[in-house]
Simulated assay, not measured.
Amino acid sequence: MFHWRADILPGVSAAFTDEGAGNLALHVGDDPAAVQERRIRLEQSIGLEPQALRFMNQVHGTTVALMDAQSPVPVADAMVSRGLPLAVMVADCIPVLLAGESGSGPVLAAVHAGRPGVANGVLPAAVDSMKALGASRIRAWMGPSICGSCYEVPAALRDEVSALVPATRSTTSWGTPALDLPAGARSQLEAAGVDVEYSGACTLETETLYSYRRDRNTGRFAGLVWRND
């Protein structure tokens, strides 16, 4: 069910699921009832009540939603909370989980960092929102995503994105233009003073993970961050 799972701060855990948890997305043509059942099983497996995880409607933007117990499902690509459990869904984009410390407890974030998000700064925006809530000593865990040796793009697109985020410029293992989104995300996080504690495998190269590049009719796995105290 989990590709990776760990306690990341006292009382806080993070995880990235794999195909063993099944598709967790409602927007890919799957049976909604089956998706909800999988989400509930996932929540039970990490000790949460049903529907405790906050999901978002991801649109490849830079909106950061500040979540509390009454917040509706946001249209956003990042969520920040004072300890509420958060989830982000992907199938080649980077699921980034962040946690920081504050005087009132942990500040958590889940970010969907695809090509537009990395290019337009969704990660720095999420970090800024965490700091506005008093977070310090922020750390990041970057889940599985397509790697810079596999993410082939047209040369013009590589030039456009790397002009904004130089670390993204890459070449595939077969010699064509590519983007290295994990390298770009890492560069942005480090520039914001955030340490990257973990970076996951390549989705395209890992059969137990969903990959849109490998199969467009695919599901989504999730990155999760939650309090377990």
Rank of each mutant, 00 (worst) to 15 (best):
V225C: 13
M89I: 08
V111I: 09
D31Q: 03
A109E: 03
M130G: 13
G29V: 12
I40E: 09
V73H: 07
E190H: 09
P144L: 01
D195T: 13
W4A: 09
D180L: 06
A109H: 01
E101T: 14
G20F: 01
S199L: 10
D7R: 05
T62N: 07
A76K: 01
P116V: 10
L133A: 12
L108C: 05
A15N: 06
S173G: 13
G219N: 12
D159F: 05
Q51I: 15
A119V: 13
Q70K: 08
V225K: 01
L42G: 08
R169F: 09
R213E: 14
Q36N: 08
G223A: 05
E49S: 10
T172S: 07
E205Y: 06
G47Y: 05
V107E: 01
G103K: 02
K131D: 14
A126V: 11
E205N: 09
L123M: 05
T203H: 04
L26E: 07
H3G: 09
A52C: 10
D30G: 09
G11Q: 04
S136D: 06
D180E: 02
G134Q: 08
G20N: 07
A76E: 13
E43K: 00
V153E: 00
A21C: 14
I8G: 02
G100M: 05
T203M: 06
A222E: 04
L53D: 07
W141M: 02
D128C: 11
A167Y: 01
T171D: 14
T62Q: 09
L42T: 03
E190M: 13
M56F: 11
G11T: 11
V196W: 01
R186Q: 15
R39Y: 13
L181Q: 04
A191T: 12
C147W: 01
S170Q: 12
G121H: 02
Y210G: 10
A156E: 11
P85H: 02
